[in-house]
Simulated scan of single mutants.
Amino acid sequence: MDELEFRRRAFADPNDPEVIAFAQQNPEHQKLLDELLLLDDKINLALDIPVPPDLTEKLMTQTKEAPASNVTQGWFGRFNKPFATAASITLAVSLYFLSVGGSNDLQAGEHALAHVYYEVKALERDKEVGLQAVNEKLAMLGGKFESLPGKVTYATFCHFKGQRSLHLIFQSDHGPITVFVVPHSGDIQDKQLGDFNDARFAGVISNEDKANMILVADRNSPVNDYQEDVQQALRWL
């Protein structure tokens, strides 16, 4: 596979195993693929809008009642609003996240919460991501899991306060747990370590050997216990 074919196939399907294997041989290729995978996830999440259960009946009723010359106009006028509203919400959240995502003034805990809310649909995923796939990504940040402290349903690279990081979601008895593995940088100060929360979520930030680790879970969950479980399973290379 040459450079041109890699780019063509990566844009067509960033989850292609051959494309993933080829990208691992070159940091620039891997960077492009990570960006495409993140974009692919965001597009899928933004487009995941449930179809109203009575849509068919409304369409049939509207078609029967409306004059022939107004069928198209009437259908659009009635049904474009939910989709337009969803698109507006997606755009608003995206603009908010982009406005705070690159701000170094935002505390790490606040940024973690904003990131979770921005990709909140990812918490609903249930397809398992295997240990090998998780470790292939984690190895790029200098770590590995000896075993997974729970079922992983989301594993992708992201940008956390401008730093390329790993975004994981585990499933637990108390619901999904988000874990950010953020390589050491000047953005997360020692004073930002420890607990944080809002009305829905609680989190904790710890300083590990080669990265900062941030956990976010339901406010009523034992987030500090989960932190210990992840720390015990994680090994630094």
Rank of each mutant, 00 (worst) to 15 (best):
E3Q: 12
F6T: 10
R8K: 12
A10I: 07
F11N: 13
F11V: 13
F11M: 10
D13Y: 14
P14N: 10
N15C: 10
D16T: 11
D16Q: 08
E18T: 13
V19I: 14
V19Y: 02
Q24Y: 08
Q24S: 14
N26R: 07
P27N: 02
P27F: 04
E28R: 09
E28C: 05
E28Q: 13
H29Y: 14
L32V: 08
L33N: 03
D34I: 07
D34W: 12
L36P: 00
L36Y: 02
L37D: 01
L39D: 04
N44G: 15
L45I: 07
L45V: 03
D48Y: 06
I49W: 02
I49Y: 06
P50R: 13
T56N: 02
E57D: 14
K58I: 11
T61A: 13
T63R: 10
K64P: 00
E65I: 13
P67D: 09
N70K: 12
G74V: 00
G77L: 12
G77Q: 11
R78D: 08
R78E: 15
F79Q: 13
N80W: 12
K81D: 12
P82W: 05
F83S: 09
F83P: 01
A84N: 13
A87N: 11
A87L: 15
A92M: 09
S94H: 14
S94G: 09
Y96T: 08
G102C: 09
G102R: 13
S103H: 06
D105G: 02
A108C: 10
G109E: 07
E110A: 15
A114H: 13
V116W: 07
E119P: 00
V120E: 10
A122E: 11
R125N: 10
V129D: 12
N135H: 06
E136F: 11
L138I: 04
A139T: 06
M140N: 12
G142H: 05
G143P: 03
S147I: 08
L148Y: 08
L148N: 03
G150C: 04
G150Y: 07
T153K: 02
T156V: 14
F160L: 03
R164G: 04
L166N: 02
L168S: 06
F170L: 02
Q171G: 03
Q171Y: 00
Q171P: 01
G175W: 04
I177Y: 01
T178G: 01
V179M: 08
S185P: 00
I188P: 03
Q189A: 11
K191H: 06
L193Q: 02
D195L: 05
F196P: 01
D198C: 08
A202R: 15
A202P: 00
I205H: 07
E208T: 03
K210R: 15
I214V: 14
I214R: 08
L215I: 11
R219D: 08
N220W: 00
S221V: 05
S221D: 07
P222F: 09
V223K: 04
V223G: 04
Q227C: 07
Q227P: 01
E228G: 03
V230G: 08
Q232C: 02
A233V: 02
L234F: 11
R235W: 00
